[in-house]
Design a binder for these strands. Structure first.
Length: 492
RNA sequence: CGGGGUGUAGCGUAGCCCGGUUAUCGCGCCACGUUUGGGACGUGGAGGCCGCAGGUUCGAAUCCUGCCACCCCGACCA
């Protein structure tokens, strides 16, 4: 603590890296590409988990757990999926170490302990899950299966960044099985909607719902739905995905069921997930040059009370007030931390809680005791005011709601200001270089054009939005006919 | 995985080209005192296998080789 952050304009990516570490969210570990999520960062993830878990259960899903390891033969069963992940799989080949005869005190892999079949560390769990579902499904009466799992996965990324892309990360993956195509598709759309609602209402991150182009689609899916968010540096970030898998995995794993007409058919499937990457999205959406800005819904502590005092008597008197406030806040469901450390002075505490994004700060000192007031400071606007202690708890409760809304509105305005309709390629390039953000433009629907634009500008099609933009037009690159605008951006 | 950069106390750094006393400075840390409404001050103190492993040399933070990690750029990336 005690050092200023690099500012966002100076070096956005440095700002992000410093913030994650200084706000005590996470740090790099001794394992390449893998992070240690520290208690404060994990507390935020737990808040996300709790809300998502509630939403999943509300929509009829149950949690279960499947193994970390996937036998290679199962993994390769669905070819497109296997191919898509092949380059980033960690593989277990041995099951034992032994003392190294040539190197005292060291261990080596026991060459005798080679596995007959290699185990792939899951980059995602479709394979092991569909292999399991095969044994669970005979009839339409066994359907649907609506399961979610909270798990870690490993993708051997070449270039990693804390939360945004790590070799191991935490996520949830839902895997559902259905009797009909319509039902599976409806599930896919529903879960994408759940993600959108979660992002917007809970995380205060505005998102655009859409589908991926073929080249950006999940390997093994028929259609990939997604929510796309825009970060403060004008780059897009995929915040969640939901895949309609058709019968691809059912066919690969031979999962058939008898329908109510007595006919055998393959099961229809969906899968969907969000990960600890959301923590990165959270940081890059709301935070500023002073540190984290957390929406009240996600803050480990929504309020912090800092006592101002000179003598023990004053601390005692202030503490008594503070405890009362905490009690009242607790009754209203507001979480509050009392920072009565005597080892730090108030200014240092202010700075720390700002860095860590606590939404509201209350300072109580001798003057307040006389006047029956407190100083109330907002993290998001950096404003403070003196307020009467009567009715403080409900004032705070309301204010937290206001902050939550205003954070969303601010982010929404930013996104709208950074979404530009463009109709010619010169402007396209110029907007991408200067203004950044989403570019809404016509696209002829071909992978060739998509690829060409990517090569020339580094922008990719983030999604084909589900609503809006339905209009005839001409492709911004090729000039060929187009039926709707799609969203381009440089992406994380 | 290719190109470039960095690695010296918890953090940030000087020293490295051109090898040679006890490795520099700031922050932080510990003790005591004075302080406490926006990152306190004074005095004293502790803390280092100079990223790791080899090599060259009478002698290596410094030169050479290999490895590891992180950062930037590229390629790759449900």
């Amino acid at each position: 603590m005690g050092k200023n952050l690099t500012s966002r304009t100076e070096d956005y990516s440095k700002w992000y890296n410093e913030l994650v570490v200084k706000a005590d969210l996470a740090e790099n570990s001794a394992v390449r590409g893998c992070m240690v999520i520290k208690p404060y960062g994990y507390a935020i993830w737990e808040k996300m988990q709790a809300e998502l878990d509630r939403m999943f259960k509300e929509t009829g899903h149950e949690n279960a757990y499947f193994p970390l390891f996937v036998p290679k033969s199962l993994f390769e069963a669905e070819e497109k999926n296997a191919e898509g992940f092949a380059k980033e799989c960690a593989v277990v080949t041995h099951y034992r170490l032994q003392n190294d005869p040539d190197n005292e005190g060291k261990l080596r892999v026991d060459p005798e302990a080679k596995l007959e079949e290699e185990l792939v560390v899951r980059p995602t769990s479709e394979a092991i899950i569909w292999n399991t579902y095969k044994g669970w499904i005979q009839s339409y009466r066994d359907l649907p299966i609506l399961i979610n799992q909270w798990a870690n996965v490993v993708r051997w990324e070449m270039r990693t960044r804390l939360f945004l892309r790590t070799a191991e990360f935490l996520w949830q993956e839902g895997h559902t099985a259905h009797a009909t195509k319509d039902e599976a598709l409806a599930e896919t759309v529903q879960m994408n909607d759940v993600y959108a609602e979660f992002a917007q209402n809970f995380m205060a991150i505005p998102v655009i719902k859409g589908v991926k182009t073929e080249s950006e689609r999940f390997a093994g899916a028929i259609e990939t739905y997604c929510i796309e968010a825009l970060m403060q540096d004008g780059k897009a970030l995929q915040a969640g995905t939901s895949h309609f898998l058709g019968q691809n995995f059912a066919k690969a794993f031979d999962v058939k069921f008898t329908n109510n007409e007595g006919k055998l058919d393959h099961v229809w499937a969906s899968s969907w997930g969000v990960s600890t990457r959301l923590v990165g999205a959270l940081i890059m959406t709301h935070s500023d040059d002073k540190g984290l800005v957390l929406p009240p819904n996600l803050a480990p502590s929504q309020v912090v009370i800092v006592p101002i005092f000179k003598t023990d008597e004053q601390l005692e008197a202030v503490s008594e007030k503070a405890e009362n406030i905490i009690k009242e806040l607790k009754a209203l469901g507001v979480s509050c931390k009392f920072d009565k450390r005597t080892t730090h002075r108030p200014g240092a505490k202010f700075a720390q809680h700002e860095l860590q994004g606590v939404p509201l700060r209350i300072a109580i000192g001798p003057k307040d005791l006389e006047n029956n007031t407190v100083e109330l400071a907002r993290r998001d606007t950096l404003t403070k005011e003196i307020v009467k202690i009567e009715g403080l708890a409900s004032t705070i409760k309301d204010l937290l709601g206001t902050i939550q809304e205003e954070l969303f509105t601010r982010a929404l305005n930013f996104r709208d200001e950074h979404t530009t309709e463009v109709d010619d390629f010169e402007t396209f390039k110029k907007v991408l270089e200067t203004k950044t953000g989403f570019i809404s433009a016509h696209w002829d629907g071909t992978a060739e054009t998509e690829q060409k634009i990517k090569e020339l500008t580094k922008a990719t099609i983030r999604c084909i939005p589900l609503v809006d933009y339905k209009e005839e037009g001409k492709c911004v690159y090729s000039g060929n006919a187009s039926k709707q605008r799609v969203l381009f951006a440089k992406a994380y």
